[in-house]
Computed example of a mutant assay.
Amino acid sequence: MTMHRKAGLAGVLTLCGGLLSLAPAGAADMPSSRLPPAPALPAFYSWTGVYLGVQAGSSWGQERTALSDTLGRAFNGAAFRQSSDSALGGAHAGFNYQAGSIVFGIEGDVEALDVGETLIAPGIAARVRRDWQASVRGRVGFALDRFMIYATGGAAFTDFDYQLQNTATGLAESADRSKTGWTAGAGVNFAYTDNLILGVEYRYTDFGKLNYAASGPLLGLAIRQESTTHALRASVAYKF
């Protein structure tokens, strides 16, 4: 009887030992409770950097020219309003620095255009032209990955070219006068690739009032010039 009990107990112990030896292998075969690592998030586009580009577009507005003469000639007080519509094109360069979603920048541009009008008053013909303009501006933008909307504003520069002739005597003189004004607007940029940036921009420019007094054969003639323009541009730039 005792021997049967011992044999039974030995069998139970042997069975338990076998089960314990199988436990690690069974646990190893069970699926892990750990989740796979999350995929890396795509990196957002960085607007920080130097860029160079070209732009083209159209400007429209009005130039106002008033003629007066201290010698009392017939055209004293004559005033003209003429169109300043013109195609334009040029180049620009700038630098952006991105802090979070806000982008700070500075940009300069120079453009060729063709604004000109001949004014005829009794006794005088005046030709007023502008063939270039430039600006230096600050920019503040809000970036949405590869899209950025921005506002811009700063100083604008141009040159007025005067060709004046007394139609009675044939005497003539010419002069160039530089003028500084201001410009402001807004636009949107899109990073088509990591280096290629496309853009569209609207700007308003005001050159204020320019007074010119003839000092040659047309001594006594005074010209007062006022110029305001709107412009819409498309641009492409390369960011380094």
Rank of each mutant, 00 (worst) to 15 (best):
D85R: 13
S101H: 15
D159A: 12
A66T: 15
S101V: 05
G94L: 11
G153P: 04
V136M: 11
D161L: 09
V136R: 09
T152K: 15
F160H: 15
I149S: 15
A87N: 15
M148I: 00
V136K: 07
Q163P: 00
Q98R: 08
V110Y: 12
L164E: 11
L71C: 06
F95D: 01
A172M: 03
G94N: 11
G94K: 10
G105A: 08
D114F: 06
R130I: 12
L164F: 02
T118Q: 13
R137P: 00
A156S: 09
F157H: 11
A172I: 02
R64L: 05
N76L: 07
V103T: 03
S68R: 09
D161P: 06
F80Y: 12
R81P: 00
Q82C: 11
R129S: 14
G72F: 07
E63D: 15
T167A: 08
A78E: 04
E107Q: 13
D114I: 11
Y97S: 06
A99G: 12
G170A: 01
A134L: 06
A79Y: 07
L144H: 13
T70A: 10
T65A: 04
D69W: 00
L119W: 01
V103Y: 02
A143C: 07
G123C: 10
L113R: 14
A66G: 06
G72E: 09
A91C: 03
L171A: 15
Q82D: 15
G105C: 05
A78G: 06
I149Q: 11
D114K: 15
A126G: 05
V128N: 05
D159L: 08
A121H: 09
G61A: 04
Q82I: 07
V136C: 05
S86T: 11
T118E: 10
L119P: 05
I106T: 13
R137S: 03
A134V: 01
A126R: 05
S101I: 08
A91T: 03
G61Y: 05
T158D: 12
E63C: 14
I102Q: 07
T65Y: 02
D161S: 10
R139H: 04
A91Q: 03
Q163D: 15
A143D: 04
Q62G: 10
T158E: 09
I124K: 03
V103K: 07
D145I: 03
V103N: 00
G100Y: 09
D145E: 02
D69G: 03
I106R: 13
G123T: 04
E117R: 14
Q62W: 06
I102V: 14
S135P: 03
E63S: 15
R137W: 03
G154V: 01
A66N: 14
S135V: 00
V128Y: 01
D85V: 04
A93M: 10
F147K: 08
S68M: 06
R81K: 13
E63W: 12
I120S: 15
S135M: 15
V115G: 12
D109N: 13
F160K: 10
L171S: 11
T70G: 11
F95I: 07
I102H: 08
G105Y: 04
A156W: 02
S59F: 00
A87P: 07
S84R: 04
G116E: 06
Q62V: 02
D161A: 13
I106K: 07
V115D: 04
V115T: 05
Q82L: 12
F104D: 07
D145F: 14
G154I: 01
G170F: 00
